[in-house]
Structure formats: structure tokens, C-alpha cells
Write a protein that binds this DNA or RNA. Sequence first.
DNA 1: CTTTGTGCAAATTCTTTGCACCAAA
DNA 2: TTTGGTGCAAAGAATTTGCACAAAG
Lengths: 140, 140
Amino acid sequence: MEVDFSMQECLLRHGIKPSLQRMAILGYLSVTRTHPTADEVYNALHPALPTLSLTTVYNTLKLYAERGVLLLLLVDEKNVRFDIDTGRHAHFQCIECKNVYDIQIENRDALYKKEVDGMKITETHLYYKGHCKACLFNEK
Amino acid sequence: MEVDFSMQECLLRHGIKPSLQRMAILGYLSVTRTHPTADEVYNALHPALPTLSLTTVYNTLKLYAERGVLLLLLVDEKNVRFDIDTGRHAHFQCIECKNVYDIQIENRDALYKKEVDGMKITETHLYYKGHCKACLFNEK
DNA sequence: CTTTGTGCAAATTCTTTGCACCAAA
DNA sequence: TTTGGTGCAAAGAATTTGCACAAAG
């Protein structure tokens, strides 16, 4: 993999030393838009990076979440998923194929409040569940 | 525990036979507004119902979710939580004390759509994370 | 050298499953 | 007597932890 300086800078900006493994994981998250689980990240990178361990994937994803590089997605009952896109958007998970898709939010400012009832808000999450186009089509 | 006919009716309406355990679990969920985990339900009922098993709690909560008696809450990274209030409202989880609170949603109709981008929506979830009043106060 | 990252194996936690027993229709 | 509910023990899956080695400054 070529060295991507923008990714290195991204990590340094968050106070994270850019190791080979960390760069690979960040690279994968940046390229895929599938909101992968830790296991999916591991399985995707393992062939090209045989020494990579699942532990390192977990360590790295946890570190990224703590430093605000990415967001935890709690949309799947089974696994935590990860989203490198920290911008204001919603998610949709198909209850058949389990895929997660991004969705635009219309009136963001009404949703992304700073506080409610005296509680200080640091994160806002909106997600939908249902049937995606592909699964609806296959049922016909 | 006294027999609560409204709870019996609730279960029958959803095609569920009202057993002692099921009534107790439904009763607990109706009374507590804490969005408990399966383990919390078990621990709360076990003293009064010593024969109750965690398996039955899981079985029952799963059944309730499938039949629409309650909603799964994915707001805590560790456990699934359960909400007997299936009405349109949002949630807030304090990242310090982990408590989950209900929040009113202002313009519901804008949020609770039937479909987006050709995907059929069956569930809508909005939740916030941050610091609750009590935890903010304690820090001072 | 000293610090920090990595990776294996084991442990932990949450949840589900298999199966035998029990209760109700 | 058949069906379905319960509960124990075991299994399974996701994630974390302890520790030794390796890498980087």
C-alpha cells in the first residue's frame, strides 16, 4: 500500500502514531462505505497483511472511537459497527440482508441539539430499520 | 402479585399465552421506566420469583420483541435494552452513569417516514449520548 | 534503553441452544 | 395426550485482557 499523507495527518491530528496496521485499518474504513464490523475489517485486511491480528483491529477501532476518528454504530443487535464518516447523517439497516446504508437528514439543526432537559448532548444517532431495495425486489 | 387483566389482555392481543413468568416480566417492564437489560429484569424479579431463569427472561423478551409488545433499544454498546413504551419517542443515555432516559421528539412526522430512497422503513430510532443532570452536578 | 504497539492465547460477557421435565388444554 | 413453557447446563459469539515479544524513537 502506498503511503497516504492525508491519512497520516488525520491520525497525527488525533494524537495517534501512524503504524502500518493503523494506516491499513483507516485506509480500509475510508475506502469501504459498508460500516463494517471489527471482524469484517480483519477479514478484509488479513489476506494482504497476514500478521494482522483481530486484537489489533479491536484495539485500533477502540482507539479511533475514543479519539473521535470514527463513530460507533449501534444499529445491529449482534455487532458494533464503525463509521469513518463522522458528519451528520442517518443510517438504515435492512433487516433481511443486514446491510447498512447512509441516509441524508433533512433538517439537521432541529435534530442535533446541544442539550435537552438540562442534559448535555455529545452524540446524536438516527437510524431506521426495514427492507432495502434489493431485498424488496428479490421477494417479488 | 395480583392478576392484572390489562396485562393479560395485552399478551392475548399479541397472541401470547400469559404465564406467570411472562406476566411478571411484563409487569416489571410496565412499572420501571429504566429500559432494563435482560439481566436487570432477571435480577429484579428473581428474589420474588426464585424459580425464574435467565433463559426464560431472554426467551420472553425475544418473544415480546417479535410480537411487537416492546422494542429493542440499541443505545448501549454492551447490552441490548428493552422498552415497553412503543410510542414515538427518543432516548438519551448518559455516558457516565449509563442510565437511559426518554425524550420527547418535536416534529415526529418529519422523522417517522414510511420509506426513504425506495427502502421500506419499519422502525425509527433516535437517541442521544452525553451527560445527564445528576452526573453534571456531581462533577462540580 | 525506554516506551509503545502488536499478537497470541485465555478469559469474560452476553446471548442462544439442546434437552428434559412440567403444566395446561 | 399433546402442545407448549420453563429452566438447567452447555455452547456460541463478540469483545477484552494479560503477557511476551517486537518495533520505533
